[in-house]
């Protein structure tokens, strides 16, 4: 009971209610179209941070998990006509298992070697889908959206609300990991894996757990994509853009705290949307690159690190 009444619980509930009110009330339809993408990146950055931020294993394979999530949905929709929530649950299971499997194969690699291995996962997954005719092959698959669930007026509004709920859940999971013994173990192994192991931390098990949870959340973020676009094809589903924005969002926001990826993803994805509309859709990729460079140089601990420094300028300057 006490946990429900905590500031975080209130904030989470308020976010869900706000998203519901927005989706039912007015606002321009485009707002939901763009808002969905921003929320999707909040989920991706939060999921990325569980392994990349807390444990320090930099994963470039976000796009693989995201894309597999989307393809799981298409497969279930085409073969069984499964409803969206079933598609999302199945995507979580499939990409969670994928996370566990790739973790087993790659997590013994450290540093840059791990990161390179994760890039390979994207190409393997994409190649498989290109060659699988049933789910559309290289040309892709056109999908007919069913009617939106009541009480939502349009399908996009419904998806916006669903993604808001997923985002809140993802953040709640990340926050739980961060403040529990799991988070302390992950930070210990990020600092020094050998000493963590000698302090009783089962490092491989914890990394596999982080990889599984992170992968499952990425898959859930990708699961509604076919319905959102009414179309799915491999090149855009496995786009490196997902990997880069997830990683950049977490780094720009700050990786040490659950709020970091949320702020970073909102900032980055909103700017991308604004630039796409006002300037050009090509320029939005540049935004990510420029912001990442600026933050890495000027604020290596992200927005949260910057805020902390501004709050306590004396404490930071006073100590050597």
């Amino acid at each position: 009971m006490r946990r429900l009444a905590s500031p975080f619980g209130i904030g989470a509930a308020a976010t869900v209610v706000l998203a519901g009110v927005l989706a039912l009330g007015g606002a321009n339809e485009y707002f939901f179209f763009a808002g969905y993408v921003v929320l999707q990146f909040v989920v991706l950055a939060t999921a990325w941070n569980i392994l990349g931020g807390y444990a320090g294993y930099v994963n470039f394979g976000t796009a693989a998990f995201f894309g597999i999530g989307a393809y799981t949905s298409v497969l279930l929709f085409k073969s069984l006509g499964a409803p969206l929530l079933v598609q999302m649950a199945a995507a979580a299971v499939v990409t969670g298992l994928l996370g566990f499997g790739t973790g087993l194969l790659t997590l013994r690699l450290r540093g840059i070697f791990y990161s390179i291995a994760t890039v390979a996962v994207i190409f393997i997954a994409e190649t498989l889908m290109i060659n699988w005719r049933y789910v559309g092959g290289a040309t892709g698959l056109q999908l007919l959206r069913p009617a939106p669930m009541l009480p939502f007026e349009t399908y996009t509004r419904m998806l916006f609300f669903i993604m808001a709920v997923v985002a809140v859940l993802a953040v709640a999971i990340a926050r739980y990991i961060e403040i529990s013994w799991i988070g302390r173990g992950l930070r210990a192994l990020r600092d020094t894996e050998e000493a963590a192991e000698c302090s009783g931390v089962p490092t491989l098990r914890l990394k596999l757990l982080a990889c599984t949870i992170s992968g499952a959340l990425m898959g859930v973020a990708g699961a509604p994509l076919p319905m959102y676009l009414s179309f799915l094809e491999p090149a855009s589903s496995f786009s490196l853009n997902y990997s880069v924005v997830a990683l950049a969002g977490a780094i720009i926001g700050g990786t040490a705290h659950w709020l970091g990826p949320v702020l970073g993803a909102i900032l980055l994805a909103s700017m991308q949307q604004i630039v796409t509309v006002t300037i050009s859709s090509e320029m939005n990729v540049l935004v990510v690159g420029v912001m990442l460079v600026v933050f890495v140089v000027a604020a290596p601990d992200g927005i949260l690190g910057l805020i902390r420094k501004l709050r306590r300028p004396r404490a930071a300057a006073g100590k050597p």
């Binding site: 302390r184 930070r187 210990a188 990020r190 600092d191 020094t192 050998e194 000493a195 963590a196 000698c198 040490a256």
Partner: peptide, 10 residues
């Protein structure tokens, strides 16, 4: 450890 390995973020 011979060369101290603290959990330096803590």
């Amino acid at each position: 450890f011979q060369i101290p390995r603290p959990f330096s973020s803590m």
